[in-house]
């Protein structure tokens, strides 16, 4: 009889527990994930960097949409590997559910990321892949595709006979390397396509000097692709001074100076990335369940070609003039 009573009590308790569990599940179904947190380590948290501010805004928007807590950090300089390693260690200590990182090109950063992954924290790499080591889930800027777009635009501007000067910053830069490869690929499709590479070492004046020298050549190129902002500004200055409007410039990124050059018609096209989307997709990927093995772990954000005629469309305004109150 005593046994009987225990079985009975147990049955009742189980029933009650089942009822409550059911209600709890129903109750928390909508709010599941409120405990999740994302730690974002960017290349730069400088408020003057429109690009990284937009990444940050996109990341915050994704976190808000998912109802997750977010912490966005980054060194002031986008080459400061020491600080980024330290921030990654902070992230590791905070034990978030996922980490999003835009890695600086440094092996120590790769090691720190690997360390976080080993602890079972989901890591998503954005912007550029890790310098070394296995690739976790990535949302990357497709710099090669951007380069192709630039090459294509320059080729069209040159009337289908591209003879293109590429002004890069450093031979060792991976970003510039990718873009350069993209430009060459696009130009290579034209039978008489030619390219020539120059390195401005991230100096506007050096780019200016280079471009002056190029213009003094007996047979100057008919288009210039400047792979970053300083190169574009320097090259544009040289061309503007020379009054050589025949030579078209295609630049990257979207500073106010570049925009003005675009308005003035000195700059013919700008290849603009979508940093907001990258931050958004990065955090969104970080908050997703781990994908099955063999699934596509790398996705790319696209870039668009902005010219004087389409720069004030609603879509492009948003990209070119990152309104600082935007998004979040």
């Amino acid at each position: 009889m005593r046994n009987h009573r225990y079985t009975l009590a147990l049955t009742l308790l189980l029933t009650a527990a089942a009822v409550c569990a059911g209600l709890y599940v129903k109750l928390f179904y909508t709010s599941a994930g409120s405990e999740r947190s994302v730690y974002v380590v960017l290349k730069s948290s400088n408020v003057r960097s429109n690009f990284w501010q937009a990444v940050s805004a996109g990341a915050a928007a994704a976190a808000k949409e998912a109802g997750a807590a977010i912490n966005i950090q980054g060194p002031l300089q986008d080459t400061d590997a020491d600080t980024q390693v330290r921030l990654l260690e902070d992230a590791f200590a905070a034990r978030p559910s996922s980490v999003v990182v835009a890695p600086v090109d440094d092996a120590r950063v790769s090691a720190a990321v690997q360390n976080i992954r080993n602890a079972g924290i989901r890591v998503v790499v954005i912007d550029m892949p890790l310098l070394t080591g296995k690739a976790p889930v990535s949302v990357l800027n497709d710099h090669r595709e951007a380069g192709r777009q630039a090459g294509e635009s320059a080729a069209e501007l040159s009337g289908g006979h591209p003879n293109i000067a590429i002004v890069s910053n450093f031979a060792s830069s991976r970003v510039s390397g990718e873009r350069e490869a993209g430009v060459k690929e696009a130009v290579g499709r034209y039978p008489d396509g030619k390219t020539q590479i120059y390195y401005s070492e991230d100096s506007e004046d050096k780019a200016y000097e280079i471009m002056k020298a190029v213009l003094a050549m007996p047979e100057p190129p008919n288009a210039v692709v400047a792979l970053n902002e300083t190169a574009a500004l320097g090259a544009a200055r040289a061309i503007e001074e020379a009054g050589e409007r025949r030579i078209k410039i295609v630049g990257f990124d979207s500073s106010v100076y570049e925009i003005r050059l675009l308005e003035d018609g000195v700059m013919s096209a700008l290849i603009v990335q979508k940093p907001f989307n990258m931050g958004y997709l990065g955090v969104k990927a970080a908050l997703k369940r781990p994908e099955p093995k063999g699934a596509d772990r790398v996705s790319y954000t696209d870039s668009i070609v902005v010219t004087k005629s389409n720069m004030y469309t609603p879509e492009n305004q948003k990209l070119l003039f990152p309104f600082d109150g935007d998004g979040n």
Partner: peptide, 25 residues
């Protein structure tokens, strides 16, 4: 936590949206 406000005009064009870029993309 997740709520937001947006504005559209009569034609349905977005006047303001916190995630305007995502919608354009």
């Amino acid at each position: 936590k997740k709520g937001y406000v947006f504005i559209v005009d009569r034609e349905g064009n977005i006047v303001y949206h916190p995630q305007q870029q995502l919608i354009y993309s």
